[in-house]
């Protein structure tokens, strides 16, 4: 390591960065603390004793609508969106490595999916279902709405992956007599696996937390963000924070699992002596 005197600029920026991290994590930390309010505590400090009263309160059905049901639905929907995002992004990512008619158009359409305001997607899908007389539901209309948000991320990650992908491995596999599927399954897939964890993370979490596109498309049964939003208008107790703490804890667990998995896969790949995708 070089030993070099840090400039004043470094310390100023480091302090700024520290404040930024505090800004990012400070508010969420306060609601985690406040969710352990005593039974008589309110939405703000001071703490009125310490208890898990509000967490217990969450599971009493009459207190906060249908927490269990919406949580389950959100997880199911998230897993569904994750699986579809993975398969569709990888497949499209493979296709975009070759030139084909309409590639540019489809690329811009995917980017458009990212920048079209969410409320338009919700309104449009909601309108179609309403005109056709179909019942919107989380597994149909909301699923489609979520995919318009997760697929662009998935595809862009795949672009980044395949741009750094050394084709020599595939050619070598083919020269050794592997078929197209074998090449993909035993050469390409293991090499891109760590990045696929990233795609999965985007797919699940973006769906699990999605609100604007879900509002008009979820139908009669709420997803968790809709349930939380409903609570903000009529719940004035720390049970709101308890819910926030639980779901954020869940998100953090998912993120950590994904990061750890990606790291392990990368280590394993590195051990096996490949250097493909090191730029990722």
């Amino acid at each position: 390591m070089r030993r070099e005197r840090r400039s004043l600029g470094f310390w100023l920026l480091a302090a700024f960065f520290g404040l930024f991290v505090l800004f990012l994590y400070g508010p969420i930390s306060t609601i985690v603390i406040l969710s352990f309010q005593g039974p008589d505590g309110g939405l703000t400090f001071p703490m009125n004793g310490v208890s898990t009263h509000w967490f217990a309160n969450l599971f009493e059905r009459q207190a906060v609508g249908d927490f269990g049901g919406s949580f389950t639905r959100s997880i199911e929907l998230g897993l569904l969106v994750m699986a579809i995002t993975l398969v569709v992004s990888v497949s499209a990512g493979l296709a975009f490595r070759r030139r084909f008619r309409g590639a540019t158009f489809l690329f811009y359409l995917t980017v458009a999916s990212l920048i079209v305001p969410s409320i338009l997607i919700g309104l449009g899908i909601g309108l179609i279902f309403s005109i056709a007389g179909w019942q919107p539901a989380w597994y149909s209309s909301a699923l489609g709405a979520h995919l318009t948000w997760t697929l662009p991320f998935g595809l862009l990650i795949m672009f980044a992956v395949f741009n750094r992908f050394d084709r020599a491995y595939e050619e070598a596999a083919r020269d050794l007599g592997a078929g197209a599927w074998q090449t993909f399954r035993f050469v390409v897939l293991p090499l891109i696996a760590p990045s696929l964890v990233g795609v999965a993370l985007f797919g699940f979490t973006l769906s699990y937390d999605e609100f604007a596109r879900t509002l008009m498309t979820a139908g009669s049964f709420n997803t968790l963000p809709l349930e939380i939003y409903g609570m903000t208008t009529n719940v004035t107790t720390p049970v709101l924070y308890a819910l926030g703490t639980l779901t954020t804890g869940f998100s953090f667990a998912i993120i950590l699992i994904c990061l750890a998995t990606a790291l392990i896969l990368q280590r394993r790949r590195a051990r096996h002596g490949s250097d493909a995708g090191k730029g990722v």
């Binding site: 994590y25 306060t30 609601i31 309110g42 703000t44 937390d209 939380i228 924070y241 926030g244 998912i254």
Partner: peptide, 26 residues
Amino acid sequence: LCTIPFWTSNIIRMISWIPFLGRHGL
């Protein structure tokens, strides 16, 4: 560390300002 909050709920991140900014907030 900077990107993790991106994968958590926007609504909860908004709610989390209440104890800080509210009338009786920090």
